[in-house]
């Protein structure tokens, strides 16, 4: 196989990886915030349900969670097997929301109580306080931890091969066994690295943007 053809095939898989990456972030970042709020809730039932969910997500392999989401509906409930891509997104979102939730929680709990008190005395409502005063400070503080997760996510997209979604790693593996060559893996590695480099650069740029306050 010519190198250009190899790159073209990998690029297709690459696009699927990018889709998994973007859709996972799009849903798990907001969901993670809701999960964090539930985790910090004074409602003990909600709080404990959320704690249990987080412990499952963090305590079992993502690869297993993907299989449960994909095969679970049929084997547990006798329902039709879901679309592979959809199952991948659901699996990733559920897993990453749990990690993001704990990052949000750490950030929110690190904000000095004086910020809430100052806002209260000035007459801000609870939601105004959270949105205008607390969250901007939280985002700045959690950014390095979020960058870590985002970078891990890029590499984790390769796990979608377990349920045969043709993302880049699945494609590379298929070509490699057909051609008896390691070149596809090398090319895939370069792809992941470049992808990560771009994302890390963007995150660094956002961090710099938030440098105006301490």
């Amino acid at each position: 196989m010519e190198f250009t053809v190899l790159v073209a095939k990998l690029a297709e898989g690459m696009w699927v990886s990018v889709e998994i990456f973007l859709l996972t972030l799009l849903f798990s970042l907001p969901l993670g915030l809701l999960v964090a709020l539930g985790r910090m809730s004074r409602n003990l039932i909600l709080k404990n349900v959320i704690k249990f969910y987080i412990s499952i997500m963090r305590g079992t392999p993502l690869i297993l969670q993907l299989m449960v989401v994909y095969f679970g509906p049929y084997f547990i409930f006798g329902l039709p097997t879901p679309n592979r891509f959809l199952a991948t997104i659901v699996g990733f979102v559920l897993n990453y929301a749990a990690y993001f939730a704990e990052i949000y929680r750490g950030g929110i709990e690190s904000i000095d109580v004086g910020q809430y008190e100052a806002a209260q005395v000035l007459g801000y409502s609870r939601s105004q306080t959270f949105i205008r005063i607390i969250m901007p400070q939280v985002i700045k503080r959690i950014l390095p931890a979020v960058t870590n997760e985002v970078i891990t996510l890029i590499k984790d997209t390769a796990l979608a091969f377990t349920i045969s979604v043709s993302e880049m790693f699945t494609v590379a593996k298929a070509i490699a066994s057909a051609q008896s060559s390691v070149l596809p893996f090398v090319a895939a590695g370069i792809f992941y690295y470049v992808f990560n480099f771009i994302v890390a650069t963007i995150m660094e740029w956002i961090e710099k943007k938030l440098d105006y306050f301490r």
Binding site: G114, Q115, E117, A118, Q137, F213, R214
Partner: peptide, 14 residues
């Protein structure tokens, strides 16, 4: 009423 705090509690991002 207004309150001036011991440790200011200014909003750092403003």
């Amino acid at each position: 009423f207004g309150l001036v705090f011991q440790n200011f509690n200014l909003f750092p991002h403003f």
